[in-house]
Computed example of a mutant assay.
Amino acid sequence: MLAGLGAVTLIVASVQNYLFGVAGGKLIQRIRSLTFRKVVHQEISWFDDPENSSGAVGARLSTNAAAVRSLVGDALALVIQNISTVVAGLAISFTANWSLALVILAVLPLVGLQGYLQMKFMEGFSADAKVMYEEASQVASDAVGSIRTVASFCAEKKVMDMYRQKCEDTLNHGVRQGIISGAGFGFSFIAFYCTNAFCFYIGAVLVQNGRATFEQVFKVFFALTISAVGISSTSSMGPDSRHQQGQGCSCFYI
């Protein structure tokens, strides 16, 4: 059975990645085309705003469209895969022993709570990182566009220091994101193992009282814990997805 599941997974995973990759590539091409069309039809005063400089607009065309692509590609494929896992897990568990399944479902929201808290913490840092990335791109664009002036005043070192400072600020934000994400990931494992311990305890009590069999306990346990892993992996990408949704929408707000 394991060998058969492995062969089926190999085929299904390859087809899934290919189809979502094609869909994402076509979407990113369409979004960039529509966004660039909107940019070239803006009034002259619109380009006087520092937020709409050539470097900032170029960064938006590059990063925002790619963010939408990631939503349609691996992220959306993972969401659909986890939804299927949850549905199958619930069906198997309730068919095996509905009383034990209800008890385990009562503690599974701990995993979802971890993903929600991680998303709320990461939400504020993502917006700041996007602004700093655009500022670094603007410094590089201005320096290259006015390279004769920079060379005439021997300001290469000053320009490099400015660009390096912008990149360091972005790096510091990335480190903070990693710490917060790691803390949320660690909490998810705590919740996961505590849930496992509680489920085995309840299962042992039911077996002792004759309300469940050994086979039913393990069937319900593995069905629901695999579903919990699917929910946890979906919630771990929640912050990025939410930020990417905001980035993608900004393409059309132009």
Rank of each mutant, 00 (worst) to 15 (best):
Q81I: 00
Q81F: 02
N82Y: 07
N82M: 12
T85G: 08
T85C: 11
V86C: 08
A88T: 15
G89P: 10
L90C: 13
A91S: 14
I92F: 13
F94L: 14
T95H: 11
N97Q: 03
N97C: 06
N97T: 06
W98M: 13
W98P: 05
S99H: 13
V107T: 03
P109Q: 03
L113D: 00
Q114Y: 00
G115K: 11
L117M: 04
Q118Y: 04
Q118S: 06
M119V: 02
F121R: 07
M122H: 08
A129R: 02
Y133P: 01
E135Q: 10
S137M: 15
Q138W: 11
Q138I: 10
S141F: 14
A143I: 11
G145K: 15
T149L: 13
V150A: 10
A151V: 15
F153W: 11
C154M: 13
C154D: 12
E156I: 15
E156D: 14
K157T: 15
V159M: 13
V159Y: 00
M160S: 10
D161S: 12
D161V: 15
R164S: 14
Q165F: 14
E168A: 14
T170F: 10
T170W: 12
L171E: 07
G174I: 04
G174Y: 12
S181T: 01
S181L: 01
G182P: 09
G182I: 07
I190E: 06
F192R: 06
Y193W: 12
N196S: 12
N196E: 08
N196Q: 13
N196I: 15
Y201E: 02
Y201M: 09
I202S: 03
I202N: 09
V205T: 09
V207F: 05
Q208E: 00
N209A: 02
T213R: 01
V217L: 04
V217S: 08
V217T: 06
V217D: 00
K219H: 12
K219I: 13
K219Y: 09
L224T: 10
T225R: 02
